[in-house]
Computed example of a mutant assay.
Amino acid sequence: MRIDLTGKVVLITGTAGGQGAVAAQLFAEAGATVVGCDVKPAPDVDRVDLTDEEAVRSWVEAAALRHGRIDVLYANAGATRFGPLEQITSDDWDFNLRHELDVVFFPVKHAWPHLRASSGSVVLVGSTAGMTGSVTNRRVAHTVTKGGVIALTKQLAAEGAAHGVRANCVSPGMIDTPATRGDLLAADHPMRRIAAAIPLGRVGDAEEVARCALFLASDAASYVTGANLVVDGGWSAVLPGVLDPAP
């Protein structure tokens, strides 16, 4: 099935690299006019600090003025700090709230009137971390914020339904990105061998997540709202077996 977004204006956050950059390319290939932003500089990407509400409002309004409408918001951007409960500082806690909840809430809030006008679509990015605990990745603040994103999806679906606005979420498991290669998949991290516990036997890639977001954003998912689509190779659905000791 080919997704056709011709004529649609799509806002995507966090497009300077990783999953956001891949998503921007896929949405553009589907015919959408993509307006991307990131805190990092990159070609054809607006420089926006998504923790600054006024900066977000200005970015959204400029996009709506330039293109006349907003049809889709894909709130992809986020950054996190991992750590066990006893070691999470108030600064770490606040960082996660700002960079995993505020960076979602502000774009949604300011895009919402435009999405109502176009009967548009919202796609948020949760995580399997927002659905389960972990004995190998100490991530108490990350668990809370991603759980909040999943909950926000359901409330947006409720508030948007009367206006034809659909809201859905993709929740990736372990995905191979520049960020995960630097921490969770690094040679010294206990999660590095996680592929052995994933039923499909491997970690995912950014395009596999972006394709799911593309589907949820499109009319192909016209009867889907309030859903949390888990993209994790079966990791969260199946209890792991006994793993051989590390060599």
Rank of each mutant, 00 (worst) to 15 (best):
W235T: 00
N228F: 05
V238M: 13
A221Y: 06
H189N: 14
V209L: 07
E208C: 04
V238N: 12
L243I: 03
P178I: 12
A195Y: 02
I175G: 07
A197C: 00
R192M: 05
D219G: 15
L243H: 08
S236P: 01
L200R: 13
V231G: 08
A179D: 11
A196Y: 08
I194S: 01
V224F: 05
V224K: 09
E207C: 01
T225E: 03
A220Q: 14
E207V: 11
D244L: 14
L229V: 13
V238P: 00
R211G: 02
V238R: 12
A237L: 12
P245L: 03
P199F: 11
A246Y: 11
R181F: 01
G173L: 10
A217N: 05
R193W: 10
R181W: 03
L185G: 05
G173C: 07
V238G: 04
G204H: 05
T225V: 05
G226P: 07
V231Q: 08
A213S: 12
A213V: 06
D244S: 14
F215L: 15
R202G: 01
E207M: 00
P247M: 11
A210R: 07
E208T: 03
D183H: 08
V203W: 03
P190M: 06
Y223W: 15
V242H: 11
R211C: 01
A206Y: 00
A210W: 02
M191F: 13
P178F: 10
I198D: 05
D244C: 00
L185C: 06
A221E: 10
D176S: 11
G173D: 10
L214R: 10
A206W: 01
D244N: 11
V209W: 01
L243M: 14
C212V: 15
P247N: 08
S218D: 03
I194W: 12
R211L: 13
L239P: 00
T225G: 03
A210Q: 05
V203F: 04
L200G: 00
G226C: 08
P245M: 07
A221I: 07
